[in-house]
Structures are given as C-alpha cells and as structure tokens.
Design a protein around this nucleic acid. Structure first.
Length: 110
DNA sequence: CGTGTGACCGGCG
DNA sequence: ACGCCGGCCACAC
C-alpha cells in the first residue's frame, strides 16, 4: 500500500508537537520544492475524512494567519484549539508565530 | 481526455 | 510599502 500524497501530508501534520505551528510552505518544501503549498491545504481539506485526527489547526499560512479556519466545523474551533494548546491568537493571527514555528525540514532533519 | 479549482508563496510593477 | 499576477501539483467533474 503506497501512501498517497495526502497521507504524507497528514503524517507530517500529526508530527507537529503540541504548542507548535507550521506553515503550508514549510511542509511543501519538506516534500521538495516541486510541491506547491496549495496541495498541502488541499490535502488537509480531506483531513476530516480521515479516521485519525489531524491537527490541521497547527497549520497556518506563512503570515501566521488562520486562513483555514473557515473550513473547520466552526470558524472559531481552530482558534480555540490553538489557544487550548497554549498558543495565543489575536485577530485570527498567531502571536509570536515565529517563536512557535515548527519547520519539519529542520526538526526532522530534512 | 481537458478544464477548473484549491486552507499558498514569491516575484514584479 | 502595497497590490496584482503567475506558478505549482494533485484531484474531481
């Protein structure tokens, strides 16, 4: 069973530690510069269909903005989850985003 | 089989 | 500094 490109994305997202956040671009880059960031968000669009919960709330755009919050069951759920993990959110924006940033290419060692 | 779309990113005017 | 445009790959219709 080869894992689809979705499963790879889900796996990386699940590897994001609690209290950390990552970006679509960072994950896409981890796959290789060939993959565009759009694919990451698109894959996450199917995350709801996965039996294994995917912490998609930890994935934000490079601005630290919770762009994907509209795709959650409730638009406030994403913010609530991040706050619940100790991340501070202000106006749909991650505070100290750079400090909470988790880069798979670095943390996982490329 | 071709077109459109998508939770983005980076470059250029 | 800001706004607009193209690119990039995968999947659905």
């Amino acid at each position: 069973m080869e894992e689809s490109f979705y499963d790879k994305v889900f796996r990386i997202v699940r590897l994001i530690p609690k209290g950390r956040v990552s970006t679509y671009g960072a994950i896409a880059k981890y796959f290789g510069t060939g993959l565009s960031s759009r694919m990451v968000g698109w894959a996450l669009n199917s995350s709801h269909s996965q039996d294994i919960p995917v912490p998609a709330q930890r994935v934000v755009n490079r601005n630290g903005l919770l762009t994907g919050r509209h795709h959650f069951p409730t638009p406030t759920l994403m913010e609530e989850l991040l706050i619940s993990e100790g991340i501070k959110i202000k106006e749909n924006q991650v505070q100290d985003f750079k400090k909470h940033f988790w880069d798979p290419a670095v943390e996982l060692g490329y």
